[in-house]
């Protein structure tokens, strides 16, 4: 029997820390909720976290990578971040908890992205996150961040954001 190696970094702790880093634009969501934290593994004495971008040009990506790095470093880990492109992130990877938190914060969660191919002028029916009415209309395909579009509920009149299927 060998004694436990105390110098070995605690990978489970590292995983937990990385998973709990909040998204900078949707701070009530963790990276684990969003499904963009792919794996956290040990390479020699370094914790390597693989993060997937949501959109190629997402301005939050650098901030996310920095946040994971500094969270791990603050906990005393030697850490490195790698960007992971394949397979590409899709909104299907947002967890059930992520969906719940989006809705609770007034953002309509994405419908299933699988087989998401829209033709010109096709309108996707989105449910209002405030009153659950299906009577809504798209105001703008593009919104405050690359991942969201603008809708308005015709029932309760509230404008809201929809997390696009991607």
């Amino acid at each position: 029997m060998t004694a436990p190696d105390v110098s070995q970094p605690d990978i489970n702790l590292a995983k937990q820390i990385a998973a709990n880093v909040p998204d900078p634009e949707l701070p009530y969501l963790t990276l684990a909720d969003l499904g963009i934290l792919r794996t956290v593994e040990l390479q020699n004495d370094t914790v390597v976290a693989y993060v997937s971008p949501t959109y190629s040009g997402c301005p939050a990506l650098d901030v996310i990578e920095q946040s994971v790095l500094s969270a791990l470093q603050q906990a005393g880990f030697k850490a490195r971040i790698e960007r992971s492109l394949l397979p590409p992130w899709t909104t299907d990877w947002i967890t059930a908890e992520g969906h719940r938190k989006l809705k609770a914060n007034g953002i309509a969660p994405p419908h299933s992205a699988s087989g998401n191919k829209q033709t010109l002028f096709a309108e996707r029916k989105v449910t209002c996150p405030n009153c659950d009415s299906g009577n809504t209309e798209k105001i703008s395909e593009f919104g405050s961040t690359p991942c969201k579009s603008q809708y308005q509920c015709k029932q309760c009149r509230e404008p809201f954001e929809y997390f696009k299927c991607h």
Binding site: G57, C58, I139, S140
Partner: peptide, 21 residues
């Protein structure tokens, strides 16, 4: 209009992000 002021920079962001990669 405002919606286009959102859409064009959004598309620009995609393109520049792809260029960076």
């Amino acid at each position: 209009m405002l919606e286009e002021d959102l859409s064009m920079p959004n598309m620009a962001l995609d393109l520049i992000g792809q260029a960076r990669a």
